[in-house]
Amino acid sequence: MIEIKDLNFSYKKHPVFRSISIDFAPNNIYGLLGENGVGKTTLLKLICGLQSPKAGSCTVNGIASFPRLPETLSEIYFISEDFAIPKGTPISHFKRLLPFYPKADLSLFKSLCEEFEVENNRPLSKMSYGQQKKALIASAIALRTRVLLLDEPTNGLDIPSKTLFRQIVSRSCNEDTLFIISTHQVKDVENLIDPIIILSNDDVLLKASHREISEKLYFQTATEQNPEALYSEPFPGGYVNVCLNHEGLESQVNIEALFNTTLHHKDTVKQLFHTSFQ
């Protein structure tokens, strides 16, 4: 559905991406991870046409996302991390957008607001940051676009809302839709995001599903550090050791440990998952 091919992008003299290729298929909730400033938000902006590639291409359903054509825009919705608060109430905001999105569903929006405990008749400007975010997430999901780009969606949400967010996103994802969630809060979305994409400076280090990761890496929790581990990090009561999975052992992917392993062993991880990310 989304195809990025040999894409180069830079802000003036600061290069962000150098010839990256990656694609995104429907029925997936992609987790986009990376250190600050590696270009997670920029990638989302490139996908929805807010930025244009310096070279290469970024297409959505075969159409270049920049310039922003209505056909593409009606299939994408983007919630930025530092979103501007729309005027009016959540319901008035949604009703304004409604005519532009052919599959938008007002009753779904109302039920999501109820689920999130957001008063859809209260002015957004008088709501807390978390409430505003929940209202925007509800409207984004109820617009029922095929691509939903969420930048740090769990920031500002309380614990029950994070749980609800995971439930709502996982049930909203179907064979026609895809979510890309850019986040630093991996614990919030640990069981939600799959596949995982890790960006580093100007490159994609890893794009793999949980299954692929656990086939190649073994996440071991032990009381001691494993000397053969690619990476170990302490946690209360022991260590998380990330080892090469030579013996085909089964383990649960620890995204935080995976992320740190990738950053410490960029080349090894890249070679291990040696793919063109397509």
Binding site: R68, F78, S80, A84
Partner: peptide, 21 residues
């Protein structure tokens, strides 16, 4: 005035209508 703003202008830019409209 917000249409050109890097933050507030996103809504204007991503509204599914053409630049001409």
């Amino acid at each position: 005035g917000d249409a050109n703003d890097p933050r507030k202008g996103i809504r204007f830019a991503t509204l599914p209508a053409s630049a001409l409209e």
